[in-house]
Design a binder for these strands. Structure first.
Lengths: 218, 218, 218, 218
DNA sequence: AATGAATGAGGGTTCATTCAT
DNA sequence: CATGAATGAACCCTCATTCAT
């Protein structure tokens, strides 16, 4: 109804372009000058939209998380079956991830750049989203031997790692990947760990505590 | 036998401290001055040990990958059972990860900082290690529906993501985590995907191609 | 009679707030944004009232000097006794100074910020005021040894320096201070310098010309 | 004995040139680039000698005050007569002031730019020097009506104001000025205030409390 | 083998000011 | 009258790196 570009639209454009630049070069290597060039907004003009580079990153992360979680709730609505809900969760996450690769890379990769209140606000979002995930896992019933906390993060690891390897021309699309990851996770999660499974013969210096230095001297 | 501090020992110390600093602040935010302060070597003195900051990062990553892969081969030696070999692989990876958190974080997090020959050299190492992993998966026999490439990276995702969440006081140690992750992966990998599993009712705009903007405007 | 806020009143409010800010932070450190915030006038809105930051400073200084001198003439009117006139001069200056500390600090402290015509206009006011002071001193009759020019500035120094130290809770008020300073000045001014008073034994390297560096190297 | 330029000498040169620039343009208007140009040291090279612009100002002020006070003590040594000591104090101050005009202007004019520890350190110096001055005044015996605190600052006002007016070609040199200011101060300080001196007829709105606005509206 | 001194390039940010509305 | 949006210029400071010693 209103064709005039609104204030919001311009900010959103800046956020989108900035996310792409942060994704490509990394937050610290990207300069405000890069963003100025990409957006065709003067260096100082940008500061009308955010107070600092860090706030810019915050705006990106905050909006991104907000939308991700918001969509999840929409998708879950009405669904009651535990497995279906897990599948929806994974699919939503991966769809969003692959549709907004730049933003999600920024979210995954620049997680601990933020400080102070910005950091706190994003962590709050993160915790809420992780809690939603854990709740879904809980609905699945007791796991077969994997701790729920580790399992949650293992699932996130599978999903969040994709920005490092996924190539659209070679790899499955979001929905297919979602099926596969749900499947992968679900069976292991439910199947009890067999006795003696861990009976691996010890070979070299054991686990933690022994902590051999990473640096070979030979 | 030789009590004199050798050249190597000092370089190694520098690499260790540098890895810790890179892990804590990120490669780009960490300055050579930080490293100078941490190592008690003068700024210019450091340049005796590496030609540039990037080479320093390379040395860390190269040694780290080298050791990781070297250990894997040692651990695998003599073992023939496919499942056992997978378990060894995961355990080796996680032990190493948790024993050398700083280095592994640098490896995971600063993967695409390197350029030119340094980049090529590390990628070669990375590919070799990934190939070893994929070979082990292949030994497991045909998967039940998950593509081997996706599965490999899903496994790496689970494992490499731990630097973002693992807390030694709360979470299982490396060996126990290895059991769980092996278990998690293995069952999903082998179990065939049931027909109709993906029959999720479509809800919002579909997967890729539709690519809704990340930024809500409502 | 007229309740509507007039043009002048708003300008005056702006000048008053600006003077306070300039006094607090110094002209150069104070930003137009600070003034915008303090006056609740938008950044660009301020430029309706003055053409540039420098003009704003000019308006403050010009008004301030104008009023100071105007009051002096009012106070002096009808008084003929030389000493009484000096007393009135000092009292007027100090009253004004302590009643308008911000403005007078700006006057004293930002004296040579102005350039071009602004500078010329203020200096004209300054010279006129200083001439009035010198005239009063002349009426006192020939000094006892102090040059009139130095004496005038010594008096101004005493008076203008107060913005650096005067604390209303501890120090005398304007009128009492005026008595004391008049007294202080008057006696020294009239009393002849005794012969041999200056017969101080030379100690270190003499006065100007010798110009020892300020920086100790021992 | 050693003709090689030492580290110190270079720092001192930088401080001297910086003081001249701060004196000429004011601290805030002067840029590090100005100093770089004046000293022929690269912009970044300067930061080898100080950590920030503020520290540079601190170094100037600290050294300056240190030397001033140090010299005072040297000059006072052995002198016992109260009046002679006052004369020495004033002479030392004025000699130093006129021999190091730039530094002293910076000291007088940029007094409250410093913050934190820098500010505290300089204020400590300032208090010590002011205390020395007050001690000398105390030795003179009880004043004739002027409060010692006001008197001290009146004297400082006379002296410190000279950077605003003194012209070497027209005005007396430091030693002569010292005589005159000592004389000016001394007589007023000792002579009792006559009764009824302050019996000035009130004319316009009285002293403080009445505080007429500085801005004329007529 | 080690370092003090120095630098060019570039970083984030602020500022006074303008102009269409 | 008033303002939201925008900008060029400048500012302070940090960085990786070098080089004479």
């Amino acid at each position: 109804m209103d064709a005039r570009p609104t204030y919001d639209e311009k900010l959103l454009r800046i956020l989108r372009e900035s996310a792409a630049i942060f994704a490509a070069k990394g937050y610290h290597r990207a300069s405000i000058r890069d963003i100025s060039a990409a957006t065709d907004v003067s260096l100082s003009g940008l500061y009308y939209y955010f107070r600092s580079k860090e706030e810019l990153l915050f705006l990106i992360q905050d909006h991104c998380f907000g939308t991700l979680h918001h969509r999840l709730n929409e998708e879950l609505e009405g669904s009651t079956d535990a497995v279906a809900r897990l599948r929806i969760f994974v699919r939503n996450h991966l769809r969003f991830f692959l549709s907004n690769q730049a933003e999600m890379k920024v979210l995954s990769h620049e997680a601990d750049v933020l400080t102070g209140e910005h950091r706190a606000a994003v962590q709050k979002r993160k915790r809420a989203y992780a809690a939603a995930a854990e709740a879904i896992l809980t609905e699945l019933g007791p796991p077969g031997g994997v701790k729920p906390r580790s399992a949650t993060f293992a699932l996130f690891g599978m999903m969040n790692w994709i920005y490092t390897w996924h190539r659209p021309d070679v790899d499955p699309d979001a929905d297919r990947l979602a099926e596969q990851m749900t499947h992968l996770f679900l069976h292991g999660y439910r199947t009890p760990i067999a006795e003696g499974a861990e009976a691996l013969p010890e070979r070299s210096g054991g686990g933690r505590g022994d902590a051999p230095s990473i640096w070979r001297t030979d």
